Every structure is written in C-alpha cells, then in structure tokens.
Simulated assay, not measured.
Amino acid sequence: MQYDDFIGEVQHRAQLDSREAALSSSRATLTTLSERIQPGEAENLGAQLPEELGRFLEEVDEVERFAFDEFVDRVAEREEIGDDDAADAAFHAQVVVDVVEEAVTEGALEDLKEQLPDDEGYDELFEIAEHEESPA
C-alpha cells in the first residue's frame, strides 16, 4: 500500500477533516505501538508499511508494559485531542490498525497481536477488522 492510499483510507474511515489529521492519528498510533511491542517486531511491521509511516515504528528502543487505557491516553496526547476524547483516540487507533492490517502480511499482523496481551484490553484495537471478517 502506498503512503497516499494509507493516509487517504485513515482519513476516510475515521471521517477526519484533513490528511494532516489522518497523518497525526497514524503517527500517534504507530509511535505508541512501537513503545509497547518488541523493537524487532516493530521494525518488521514498519518494513511492510510505506517508508514515511514505517519510521514511526522504529523510533523507540525500549519496550514498556502498559494497558490499553494507557495506550489510548498516549495516542490522545500525541494527537493533541485531549483527555475528554479518549473514545475518539481509541477509534482513531482502531482505524489505523485496520488499515495496517490491509497493508501488511497476515503473519506480521499475527506477530503484532501476540505482542499485545488479551487481558489488558488490546483486543479492542482489532475490533473493526474482526467485525468486518465476521459473517453478517
């Protein structure tokens, strides 16, 4: 997937006003993911994304353990959308991960899921993609 297509999909699916807002959501989500998953896994995932986006997964060398609520707080802070809009930040992160799913191999996505523990709420990140896959 090309950079323009990725950002366009995020903008459309998240119903954002601009490409800049879509880039901000993408940057916030990918940077926060890079803080939570192993550097090697982040680099593998980033290598399958457009270079302009993959670099956000390569900026962090230290992995931290934090729950999904903290993940959402960090995305909201990076997007500068405020604490009152945690639901928006969570939705934006879900949209970005949904577009990532289409841009990378199934193996890379499975590796990502394995890095994020189910018991800390991270399954919410994949809700859009899983909802689309389920039979109607």
Rank of each mutant, 00 (worst) to 15 (best):
V10R: 02
F68E: 12
A103Y: 08
D119A: 10
D123Y: 07
D84E: 15
E79K: 01
D69W: 04
Q2Y: 11
A21M: 08
A14H: 01
Y3G: 00
Q48H: 05
L53H: 01
I81N: 07
P50C: 09
S34D: 07
H131Y: 14
V75Y: 05
S18G: 05
L33V: 11
Y3I: 02
A136W: 14
I128L: 15
S34T: 06
P39W: 02
E62R: 01
Y122W: 11
V75S: 09
A87P: 00
D61L: 01
L112S: 04
A42Y: 02
R65V: 14
L30A: 09
V100G: 06
E124L: 13
G54P: 04
V99G: 08
F126H: 04
I81S: 12
L116H: 09
D5Q: 04
G46M: 05
T31D: 08
Q94Y: 11
R74H: 12
A14K: 00
V60C: 07
A87N: 02
E35Q: 10
V60D: 13
H12F: 15
T29Q: 05
D98W: 06
F91L: 13
G40S: 06
E101K: 00
F68M: 12
E62H: 10
H12G: 07
A67C: 13
E51W: 00
R74M: 12
E51N: 04
F56E: 11
E41G: 06
T105H: 08
F66G: 11
G82V: 10
K113V: 15
G54D: 05
Y3M: 05
E35L: 11
Y122L: 10
D88Y: 08
E64Y: 09
L49F: 09
D118G: 07
V72P: 01
H131T: 15
L53R: 00
I37H: 04
D123P: 00
D119Y: 04
A14Q: 03
E59F: 07
G54Y: 04
E41C: 02
F68I: 05
Q48E: 15
E62P: 01
V95N: 05
H131R: 03
R36I: 07
E62V: 15
A90C: 08
M1Y: 04
R13Y: 14
I7P: 02
S26V: 08
S18A: 08
L23T: 10
G54C: 03
P39K: 04
I128P: 06
Y122C: 11
E43M: 09
D88H: 05
E133V: 06
R78T: 13
M1A: 11
E114C: 06
A108R: 03
R78L: 14
F126S: 04
F71G: 07
A87R: 01
D73P: 08
L116G: 12
S34R: 01
E51R: 02
N44Q: 14
H131S: 14
E62D: 15
H12M: 10
L53P: 04
A28G: 05
E102I: 06
V75H: 04
R74E: 14
A136L: 13
V96I: 09
V63T: 13
